[in-house]
Design a protein around this nucleic acid. Structure first.
Lengths: 169, 169
DNA sequence: CATATCTCAGGACAACTGATATCC
DNA sequence: CGGATATCAGTTGTCCTGAGATAT
């Protein structure tokens, strides 16, 4: 056990944790930091193209929804927002001429969301910028493979989680 | 090359990407999803203790600032917010009796932020809940080690980034 | 009728910008 | 004085909740 602890300690004190008063640096601390840093990258990239990061996520989901178009409810679910709030967001995006709402003839409750050509360009630029950012990391094949594997492991764990939120004593 | 591509494709199409219309699933897509999912975990855990996630980050940083106490500017920097906004946040936190502001006698421009005992408990509860969440993942030693290593790789890459945000054409 | 999808009205509130006071 | 630190005033904007309209 002593051996295990020593090995874990060796790897579990990254430089950035030096100035923090933490007993130990585990997965959560790393994920928290990752969350912050990646959020910032996202902010910068989207701002450079002139969209907010929240809007980019909406636009990106619409773009990826295929020929059927995106639906407000579905997008709200994925992003963890209310449908009412999503209507407001869409009003805004539509008002700026970035998104169109078309009634779906097959189910007239539904609405098909589509990007206007100009915004399709913009989201493509954001995505290209993100890909460029990824390319700038200059990952080797092996490293990439391992990062993918780790990310997928984490994502599976997180996706299975749905029932979390332990209550405090 | 054909071999490499085949191998990469095998690993680069996680299940969750099935319904998305993506040409390829790279690191960014995974990080985006990770960002969303972990953000939700954070929301749930903090909400269960009765704080907002943004507030938890502030409280957590104050708690970890050691004997000197935290300073508004420093916290704003770490979280990527404006100092003006931080003042408002601190007003709120102080108003709720969660944080105290003490003048620093050694540099009277500065202010030392401290948690009230009650809130120190709350942040501890959140942290414990996060640790419990981590423990619930039931990671094996080897898996943990690999996740740590990968997370640290990513964090280094992100930390070196500071100069990103490529401009669009 | 029960359910699903979307919208509307009204409100809450967090965060920003820019200017200001104080201190090193 | 030039820089840093924190705050204030005024505003913007995003999102939520809860109720309602229309369609299945």
């Amino acid at each position: 056990v002593a051996n295990r602890r020593a090995r874990e300690d060796a790897v579990s004190r990254p430089e950035w944790a030096a100035e923090m008063h933490l007993e130990s640096v585990g997965l959560v601390a790393r994920l928290l930091r990752l969350h912050l840093l990646f959020g910032r990258v996202l902010d910068e990239v989207t701002a450079a193209v002139g969209i907010g990061d929240a809007d980019y996520l909406v636009l990106g989901l619409i773009e990826r929804s295929g020929d059927q178009g995106g639906s407000p409810t579905r997008i709200a679910e994925i992003l963890g927002r209310s449908t009412g709030g999503m209507t407001l967001t869409l009003d805004r995006l539509e008002g700026m001429g970035w998104v169109t709402r078309e009634p779906d003839p097959r189910d007239r409750r539904r609405i098909a969301l589509r990007l206007t050509p100009a915004r399709a360009d913009a989201t493509t630029r954001v995505r290209n910028a993100l890909y460029a950012w990824e390319a700038d990391l200059r990952l080797g094949d092996r490293e990439k493979e391992r990062l993918f594997a780790m990310a997928d492991t984490l994502l599976e764990l997180l996706a299975d989680d749905r029932s979390s939120a332990p209550a405090p004593p």
